[in-house]
Design a protein around this nucleic acid. Structure first.
Length: 1017
RNA sequence: GGGCCAUUAGCUCAGCAGGUUAGAGCGCAGUCCUGAUAAGACUGAGGUCCCUGGUUCGAGUCCAGGAUGGCCCA
């Protein structure tokens, strides 16, 4: 016996039952343990931070992370899955700052770093219970018992080891990084904070002339500009205070530039600017002397052919720094001219087509400095005061604007000066204008391994594939060094100690190494590697004997997660074997924003450390938006809590929606209604087939062991078995190529066919009284389909799959695996696929559909038998196909005969005449009418049985009263009616204790009564 | 400003080595079928396949430009 299954099902209750079962039987643990020795399949879990409740987007990635390892386990792999927690980083700090009402780093310092970090530490596990619950409830199998945690000393020590490795390879250096900086607060702002503070403001708008060096003027003659007048490059800026930091001008290489002659205050001179911007820029009459492309202006090289110009200011008593030397040291190059560079950011929409570049200010400028190895000049200190030239020394930047404008005017280097109203970012806390300011920062020299990063990417399978050469590939192609230090508090401390006296830097790679330092002090037990404790540790400089103190920076939290392949195992200090066998990962999965985040940091650190990629396969998920297409955010209040959906619809419904509703890489609009739709369309359909099977199998005491070697005979059985094997093949292919969506959609189509054709067409085979070979074949077929489905579905909808598997397998096969998740994934038997039969059956479906449409048009209900249906088909092949599935058509269309005619389409026929044509014989003879009435009576009686609350298998006595015509039909079709309604007898006259109803059909009044005689089964 | 992705029915999505009549589910209206069904079938309304050009005998599908939305980076 199978456990009886109601068609009414509560999936959340199923979830509970199955979760208890898994826990009690330790199925997840065993699914790993019992595969010991099998090839490993390694998932790296991208660690979440548990300082807020998980949202439905977390459910999305957790489902996709789960599907593949479950599948691989069933394919025979061993898949340990280690959980992880990301516990450091600026978002954690900001959350605490918000709670404490802090508005600056000074507040944190005053509060005490120890106290602050203690708060941070506590906060990152606040919602761990919610995360645990989501993880469990959604069925994400993950080893939550032994997670890696980025704040642990062992994890930090591994990070230090990584840095030391890079340090020894010369891949770490201190340079500059441009950050939005508030000069009043003395701190950098995150991009999110910057976004808070855009305001409309008035700023200077000045056109500045950069004088072309004498030796370069000659170069211009080749463009038709013969003259010995003074020549200037005209540039436009709204931040005059940045001009002292200018070290280059950028042009658009493909744009046309004009050399024009103008007369200003009775002096003739020449200006160079973009041809397209002559009108909008120049306020004097001008004469075009010649034109050339931007790239021609740039010429070849400095000091060879090409335009160079004289700096506006020579502010630098100190030597110029050069990007060529990573800003570490400089060579004096006083009197140097600057040159032109190409910039894809140069716009021809405003300005002059010549852009002033000051690498100390602004990302674009800094980037240009790095790429073109420009000089670097910093004429502003961190308080926003100018330095390096007596003219403006000590002035706040904004107050220096008018000084500089006045100075340029006097020197005749100012062409035009106005004001402009535009948006500019201000500090959201104190309304001071922000400076994009280059600050010292520590870098990992990823550019040194750029070729390896790119070639390693070639070995990675990306889903969707376009990410590989698109978003990720582009990112690698445009790689810049990774600024990985942060001037913050809560993070892995940078393990660099600097000597106060001689400036020597030491990188520490392990706790042991630190403890062995001479003259060590400040190290306290129990060890806490976080600030401020680690800041107390100092030791003796091996060079000069001075004190070495740690630099105050902490690491970008992305470094932590990027180091997880080694740090999760505390490698190389322990677990060497575990690290080796689990690196690189077979599979990772996160949302698309991680291309520049975790995907990159994993790839970068792996390439730098081991010169190989970190993961072989990656699914890159699109984002979830709300039903209106808006991003979900706490402030909008449109965040969907996954637990409410899990409680109402169950885990599988949510999983099914997430897996099948849209391609993985697409954004998707989320709504609870769509989850419910998938539940109805797929899960309930599947459940109904399952419930149907169990109901009848129990009535017939079907035992699957008796049919284990059956060979399928009926066309219907062969057809669905063909479909099933094709499905196995397709699902396997889809999951092998990391495409759960197509796998799920294929299963859904199969289940629809199974329910709407196989079961519908087979009902009578299960319903009939005798247990003949045909009935057993039907049971065996449906049993096999459901059991196979449970295995195919196990990775996708693990709960309902388990529920079905348990009931189908356990009562009869105690030696089979105890859980579907311990079973082998089905293998397709393509020898059982009859493609012709599949085509024929689809043809039968099509013709049935047309036939029903024809009946509908003629107004004849299907219950009324008809003499025949005639079908015009287009080929002999179709005709043979119909012959093969004729019996299905006879039943489905309720006709006595099927007549097939082959009528090739006329030569000129194109549209509208290609498919088969179906006609029904609408003549209803008295015999057919009687038969129709008989069927009508059966239908009414069936409904009465249900209304009376009888069991499906109850036997009854049926009583009737009615006209002669009714009596004639009842006596004429008595055996049929008895069989269909499980009536022992049909008798005239209705006793009072029978359940009775009166009916009217075909214009005849009649009354029926039904009474239970004996309970069957 | 740059890059990537998307845009097909009211909603969610299929469709493509270019091929004649662009489909499904949900929703809506009507009819039917039903002792598995919280289902199902049929019919109907509902489409300038985002726009403009181009390639082609032929474009929802390929190419170019643009629009809108999302994401990432400026």
């Amino acid at each position: 016996m199978f456990e009886p299954v109601s068609s009414k099902v509560s999936f959340p209750e199923v979830d509970r039952r199955i979760l208890d079962f898994w826990q009690e039987k330790r199925i997840f643990e065993r699914s790993v343990e019992e595969r010991k020795g099998a090839p490993l399949f390694v998932l790296y879990e991208g660690p979440p931070t548990a300082n807020a409740s998980p949202g439905v987007h977390h459910a999305l990635s957790r489902v996709f992370k789960d599907v593949i390892p479950r599948y691989k386990t069933m394919k025979g792999y061993c898949c340990p899955r280690k959980a992880g927690w990301d516990t450091h980083g600026l978002p954690v700090e900001l959350e605490i700052e918000r709670e404490l009402g802090f508005s600056s780093k000074a507040d944190i310092e005053a509060y005490g770093v120890a106290n602050f970090n203690a708060k941070c530490r506590e906060s990152v596990f606040r919602y761990v219970r919610e995360w645990d619950e989501l993880t469990e409830r959604i069925g994400f199998w993950l080893d939550m018992e032994h997670p890696y945690v980025t704040l642990e000393n062992s994890y930090i020590e591994s990070c230090w080891w990584v840095i030391k490795q890079l340090w020894e390879k010369g891949l770490i250096y201190q340079g500059y990084k441009v950050t939005p900086h508030c000069p009043r607060c003395g701190t950098s702002l995150s991009s999110h904070e910057v976004a808070l503070g855009y305001e409309e403001t008035d700023d200077p708008s000045v056109w500045v002339k950069f004088r072309v060096a004498n030796r370069a003027v000659k170069y211009l003659e080749s463009f038709g500009a013969r003259s010995d007048l003074p020549t200037y490059l005209l540039a436009w800026t709204t931040t005059p205070w940045t001009l002292p930091g200018n070290t280059a001008l950028a042009v658009a290489p493909k744009a046309d530039y004009a050399i024009v002659e103008v007369e200003i205050d009775n002096r003739k001179e020449r200006l160079i600017l973009a041809e397209a911007l002559l009108e909008s820029s120049l306020v004097h009459p001008y004469k075009v002397l010649g034109t050339c492309k931007g790239i021609e202006l740039m010429g070849q090289q400095l000091h060879q052919e090409g335009v160079e110009y004289e700096p506006l200011y020579r502010v630098h008593d100190e030597p110029y720094k050069s990007f060529e030397l990573n800003l570490q040291a400089g060579k004096p190059r006083r009197g140097e001219n600057f040159w032109l560079i190409a910039g894809d950011f140069v716009s021809l929409g405003e300005g002059t087509g010549i852009v002033h570049i000051a690498p100390a200010f602004g990302d674009v400028d800094f980037e240009a400095g790095v790429r073109n190895r420009l000089y670097f000049v910093q004429p502003v200190d961190e308080q926003g005061n100018m330095k390096g030239n007596p003219l403006f020394e000590g002035r706040f930047v904004k107050d220096a604007d008018h000084v500089i404008i006045g100075d340029l005017e006097v020197r005749r280097l100012l062409y035009r000066s106005e004001t402009i109203r535009h948006t500019y970012p201000f500090c959201w806390r104190c309304a001071t204008p922000l400076l994009y300011y280059a600050k010292p920062s520590w870098y990992i020299k990823t550019t040194a391994k750029k070729e390896s990063l790119i070639s390693g990417n070639e070995e990675i399978n990306w889903y969707p594939e376009h990410i590989k050469r698109g978003r990720f590939g582009d990112w690698l192609e445009n790689n810049v060094d990774w600024a990985f230090s942060r001037e913050r508090y809560w993070g892995t401390p940078l393990p660099v100690w600097r000597c106060q006296d001689c400036g020597r830097d030491d990188c520490i790679g392990s706790i042991e190494e630190l403890k062995a330092k001479p003259g060590l002090s400040g190290l306290e037990e129990p060890l806490n590697l976080h600030r401020p404790f680690v800041d107390e540790v100092s030791f003796e400089c091996p060079e000069c004997g001075g004190r070495m103190h740690r630099l105050p920076d902490v690491l970008d939290a992305w470094f932590d997660s990027g180091a997880m392949p080694v740090a999760q195992w505390h490698y190389p200090f322990e677990n060497e074997e575990k690290f080796r066998e689990s690196f690189p990962a077979d599979y990772i999965c996160e949302a698309v924003d991680q291309t520049r985040g975790w995907f990159y940091t994993l790839h970068a650190l792996s390439t730098l450390l081991f010169d190989r990629p970190c993961f072989r396969n990656v699914i890159c998920l699109g984002h979830i938006l709300d039903a209106q297409g808006e991003k979900m955010s706490k402030s909008k209040g449109n965040v969907v809590d996954p637990l409410t959906i899990l409680n109402s619809h169950g885990a599988d419904a949510l999983r099914w929606y997430l897996i099948t509703s849209s391609p993985v890489g697409n954004v998707r609009r989320f709504s609870v209604e769509l989850v419910g739709e998938g539940l109805k369309r797929f899960l309930l359909t599947l459940w109904n087939v399952y419930s149907f099977f169990v109901t009848y199998a129990n009535i017939d005491k079907y035992d699957p062991r008796t049919t284990s070697n059956i060979s399928y005979k009926a066309e219907l059985d062969c057809w669905i078995i063909s479909e099933l094997n094709q499905l196995i093949e397709n699902v396997t292919k889809a999951l092998d190529s990391y495409n759960p969506t197509d796998a799920g959609r294929g299963i859904q189509e199969f289940v629809e066919d199974l329910s709407n054709w196989y079961v519908r067409r087979s009902r009578r085979r299960f319903w009939k009284s005798e247990s003949d070979a045909d009935k057993l074949s039907a049971y065996a077929t449906l049993y096999h389909c459901l059991l196979t489905l449970s295995k195919l579905l196990a990775p996708l909808t693990p709960f309902v799959a388990e529920e079905i598997y348990q009931n189908l397998v356990r009562p009869f096969y105690p030696n089979e695996p105890e859980s579907v998740h311990l079973a082998q994934f089905p293998a397709a038997d393509l020898s059982q696929v009859d493609e012709q039969l599949i085509d024929d059956t689809h043809l039968a479906m099509k013709i049935s559909s047309l036939g029903r449409a024809a009946r509908s048009k003629a107004g004849i209900k299907v219950r009324q038998p008809l003499a025949k249906v005639s079908i015009d088909v287009r080929s002999e092949g179709e005709s043979q196909g119909i012959e093969r599935v004729k019996s299905q058509l006879v039943e489905e269309l309720n006709v006595k005969d099927v007549e097939v005619t082959v009528r090739p389409p006329p030569a000129e026929a194109t549209a509208g005449t290609v498919g088969p044509v179906v006609n029904i014989d609408t003549v209803i003879t008295p015999e057919l009418a009687d038969e129709g009435t008989a069927r009508e009576i059966v239908h009414r009686l069936q409904t009465m049985r249900k209304n009376a609350g009888f069991d499906i298998a109850d036997y009854i006595v049926t009583y009737y009263q009615g006209s002669e015509a009714i009596k004639r039909v009842i006596s004429g079709f008595a055996p049929y009616i008895k069989q269909e309604t499980l009536s022992r007898e049909l008798s005239e006259g209705i006793p009072t204790d029978a359940y009775q109803e009166s009916h009217k059909t075909a214009g005849e009044e009649m009354v029926f009564g039904v009474k239970r005689t004996a309970r069957a089964g």
